[in-house]
Simulated scan of single mutants.
Amino acid sequence: MSDTTVATGRRSRWGLFIAPVLLLILALAWTGFWFYAASQAEVAADAWRAQEAKSGRIYDCAKRSIAGFPFRFEVQCSGASVALVSQNASKTPFTAKLDNILVVAQVYDPKRVIAEFSAPATLTDGVTQSTFVVNWSKGRSSVFGLPAVPERASLVFDDPNINRLDGSVQVPLARAKQVELHGRLADGSPADHPVIETVLHVAQGSVQGVHPLLAEPFEADTRAKVTGLSDLTPKPWPQRFREIQAAGGHIEIVQSRIQQGEMIAVAAGTLGLSANGRLDGELQMTVTGLERVIPALGIEKMLEEGVPQATLDRVAPGVKSQDLNNLFGALDRAVPGLGKVIKQNANAGVAAGINSIGTESTLEGKKARSFPLKFVDGAVLLGPIKVGQIPPLY
């Protein structure tokens, strides 16, 4: 055998080892990269927590771990808790505790982060000391654009329900088939004056213990746009609202639709903030099935049983409950039965009042009524009638 043949055989045998050796080197390099990136993820998480804490949002985990090797990062947070220290006008802590949060990011797409939340969550209001229990079958969120300013984010809960704890008894407050909240930076939005577009969808929602109308299932879809922001860095909400008010910012309700049975209501308009931190603005509403809604308000029954002073303060400020009852008594004495007739026709009077301030319209092929819903320094006005009062946002 010639020397040339021996040399060729050696080179061919060495070629058999080149691919495995390169693969081993690549695997070791990838492993080193993954563990380094995982350690940096923990550093980034700690830095984010510290930044949030300065804004009054304190996040903590009883136990935290990172897994997902080799192609993704999975951050597991067991015994998660959130304390909102300065997020409301009263500056009283609001706390939430969750069983578990799983945050996932792909190595090849680190800008997109997905999180899953395990029920239940326990919420405690520091002002009233009330405790609420929130459950859901599936809860998840996604954020795109990290680690810089997020470009878009979503939050979705399936079968959510909220119960208030009354001792050891859970009292139902609200529930839905699904709740979705989506937000994104508007196209062309500048970094120093970002504009946020949001979409809220509620499927088969209901609220108990407030009014029988709200206890009936409803569908809601709202699209809104928020302006007046100076940046998207973490800040307490009262500070954020003050900045929006100072900049002349507003919330534009681009489109809102609520349906409950035969009743359909759509609204659009702009809401701003007064110097007192209360809502100012006007929504133009169009409603079908209003004749079905008014009897459900039970106004004549309320008058028959006596109007609570708290209700009068809301719908007719300055009018005393005793004065109203005395009026009906005087009417009955002057003309027997007159007070009762007025009470029984109260709904018709309210309907006539709304008809007088609105105009006939058509909505989705049905007869409807259009009218303005005004917000004046927190007071909610339907024509000249005050129907509610919204507390200040800061």
Rank of each mutant, 00 (worst) to 15 (best):
L283G: 13
R278V: 09
V287Y: 03
Q255W: 13
Q260P: 03
G277C: 00
M263L: 10
D280Q: 01
A246V: 06
A246P: 00
A265C: 07
V266W: 00
V293D: 06
Q260V: 09
V287L: 10
A275G: 11
G272F: 01
Q284R: 14
S256T: 14
G298A: 07
E282T: 15
L290I: 14
G272A: 03
Q284T: 11
S256Q: 09
S256C: 06
A296Q: 15
A275W: 08
L273Q: 00
A265H: 04
T288W: 11
N276E: 05
I294R: 08
M263N: 09
G298V: 14
E282L: 05
R257V: 01
I258A: 09
I253Q: 13
Q284C: 07
R257C: 06
V293K: 04
G261N: 03
E291F: 08
A246W: 04
E282Q: 14
Q245C: 00
M285C: 08
V266S: 01
A268P: 14
G289T: 12
M263C: 02
G272E: 01
T288M: 04
G289K: 06
G298F: 14
H250T: 14
S256W: 09
G269S: 05
Q284H: 15
L273F: 05
R292G: 12
I251T: 11
I258L: 12
M285G: 05
R278G: 14
G261M: 07
Q255C: 08
L271P: 01
M263T: 10
I294W: 13
G272Y: 06
E262A: 12
Q245Y: 01
G249C: 11
M263I: 06
R292T: 12
G269T: 02
A267G: 01
A247G: 05
V293W: 06
R278L: 15
R278Q: 14
V266M: 04
I264A: 02
M285V: 13
Q259R: 14
G248H: 12
S274T: 12
S274E: 04
G298I: 12
E291D: 15
G249L: 07
T270W: 04
R257S: 12
R257L: 09
T270I: 10
G277F: 03
A275Y: 02
Q245D: 01
Q245P: 02
Q255M: 13
Q260N: 03
I264M: 08
E291L: 09
I253D: 03
H250A: 12
T270S: 11
I251Y: 11
H250Q: 13
L273Y: 00
A267M: 02
G249R: 04
